[in-house]
Design a protein around this nucleic acid. Structure first.
Lengths: 320, 320
DNA sequence: GTATCGTATGAAACCCATTTCAGAGCAAGA
DNA sequence: TCTTGCTCTGAAATGGGTTTCATACGATAC
């Protein structure tokens, strides 16, 4: 591998001059620039970026922590992140945790060791104080509803979004209402739970423990959700399902069993996936690609800690 | 930031010894090891990985080139890659090209500049010779059916898979058969086209140009596909659709228009997504996560150029 | 005529670890 | 007693850039 020294020799200049040419610095005479360029071409030189990283102390790499790659919710966020990151000259390293804490720590360690310039946490496992601990090594952006003074965040107001969804269900006249979540203990989930409890109290509606369903991630989970619901003696008449994938699985399974939505059970989903559009699922549209874009924006301005909230939209369709 | 030198000083040893401790080399006396460990703890030291990368000449990073992140096909492959890569101590950098050549070149340049130890190309844009050009900088693994002597590859035998799908359609008695592709000019597509032409010739069936549909990627494309099909005067009675996402979009749209599958039009998909299972779509199951896993295996053994072919399975369900 | 400023250039310091090489000390085998 | 051979250690070379600092020169300002 030829290096900058050889180029300097070949071109009859100093390494500084070569470096200046490579980085488009001014103050290089046209003749020297030309001979450097020639040397680069002749010797087929390309810089060793690891040396640059070492020297500059940055890598133009952002770590992205997600639980799954093959999921529309995270796929959409990652899409948004990638686009914006590319736009500002960054690339992203994917950390697929499958909710294993260790994988998340790996990413944080890479921040500490300077392999990453920053981290975007789409779904968190560790406690907040662990993240705060690592924040000194570089910006950590949270995609969750938080008010941490030290960490910027970008999120949807899940409390409000869920509330408005539930208000809509109530307004439609449903009284026996259930809901489903992914992980019970995630930040988003707890906000939704709070919203659910508050609204149900407000209208003095029955809030049955069994009508909270867990483990809704993928389309297949919707199948299980239907079976759980179907095996109940006292069934909720409407279910707010945490994402459209699971909602779709529920509805398609229901149809197989000869049941109709919303006649037999009303469904309201989240995310406004293209699948939900196809199935005419009433859902709360979340601007996922914007979350990604904004996360990168926040990363770019680490001096200013901000908590950005994005808007949601209720898409009224035909499942409730 | 404290560095290895400071640790050495603090612990009263040489940097070599510190390095030995960090890398678990033998031949360090227990006392020195202990004092180094203490120093590390005291000064809260962590290695600068960029220096390690520079020194070792590798980064434990694999680039992955895909067109989209939010797509089940690539999501599944990436899932497989990530898992296996993690297992051998690697991380992956995503290059989402959206079929822009420039993005692909970016990845190749990062290989050249040693930011990546290798590249897995899930969907290629550039001509083969471009890739061959960069192969000298590190292993490039192709996820496509190729016989390149210099590059390892992992693929499904798309010719055989498509052929057997088509044979099945023919055996079901269909004579007017169409098919859809993503990009017409991709390697996989051309294999499918060849298979289509061969089989149609074999059975002396009509091979109409208009019955080849393009641009099938996402579920929404299925909607358009249906409309295209529906507006035809002379319609094919069966369509082999290049992926389950598009097939699902087609079927759901058809249902909205009051048409039934397979009564009004028979559909056969590819990939065996969970959505296809839900919708009972007859499809060709492709082991996508295995593609990912095998790609990493091939990357790991760059001395041996291999062309691995994985098996497919026809999932007979209810849309044909 | 002199002070000042912008352009141009190279030497050297700096970023930070790994790894080779040489040598020291000590124990076991001949 | 002498030779191997193993354990342990540090100096120095190596990987390859960026950037600061000092300096030189020509041109403009006063």
């Amino acid at each position: 591998m030829t290096n900058i020294k050889e180029i300097a020799q070949y071109a009859g200049v100093s390494v500084s001059t070569v470096s200046r040419v490579m980085n488009n610095h001014p103050y290089v005479s046209p003749e020297k620039r030309k001979s450097v360029l020639q040397a680069i071409d002749q010797l087929n030189y390309s810089r060793n970026i690891n040396a640059i990283h070492l020297s500059k102390g940055k890598t133009n790499l952002i770590g992205v922590i997600i639980p799954f790659t093959n999921h529309p919710y995270y796929g959409a966020i990652v899409q948004g992140i990638t686009k914006q990151a590319n736009a500002i000259g960054y690339h992203i390293v994917i950390f697929q945790t499958q909710y294993e804490r260790e994988k998340e720590i790996q990413a944080l360690n890479m921040l500490q060791m300077k392999q990453l310039d920053g981290i975007i946490v789409c779904s968190r496992i560790s406690e907040m104080k662990v993240l705060l601990d690592y924040h000194k090594y570089g910006p950590i952006i949270l995609c969750e509803d938080t008010a941490q003074a030290e960490l910027s965040s970008i999120s949807i107001d899940h409390y409000a979004a869920f509330s408005s969804a539930l208000e809509y269900v109530v307004a439609k006249g449903y009284k026996k209402i259930g809901y489903s979540l992914g992980r019970k203990k995630s930040r988003n989930s707890s906000l939704r739970t709070k919203a659910f409890n508050d609204i149900m109290n407000k209208y003095h509606l029955l809030n049955k423990k069994e009508w909270l369903f867990e483990g809704s991630y993928h389309i297949k989970d919707g199948e299980k959700l239907f079976q759980d619901w179907n095996s109940m003696i006292d069934k909720p008449e409407a279910i707010i399902i945490t994402n459209d994938d699971t909602a779709s699985g529920f509805i398609l399974t229901a149809n197989k069993f000869g049941m109709k939505v919303p006649e037999d059970v009303a469904i309201l989903g989240f995310n406004n996936d293209s699948l939900s559009e196809m199935l005419d699922i009433t859902t709360v549209s979340l601007p996922l690609d914007w979350i990604g874009k904004m996360a990168v924006d926040l990363f770019e301005n680490p001096e200013v800690i901000r908590h950005v909230k994005l808007d949601y939209t209720l898409m009224k369709r035909k499942t409730i």
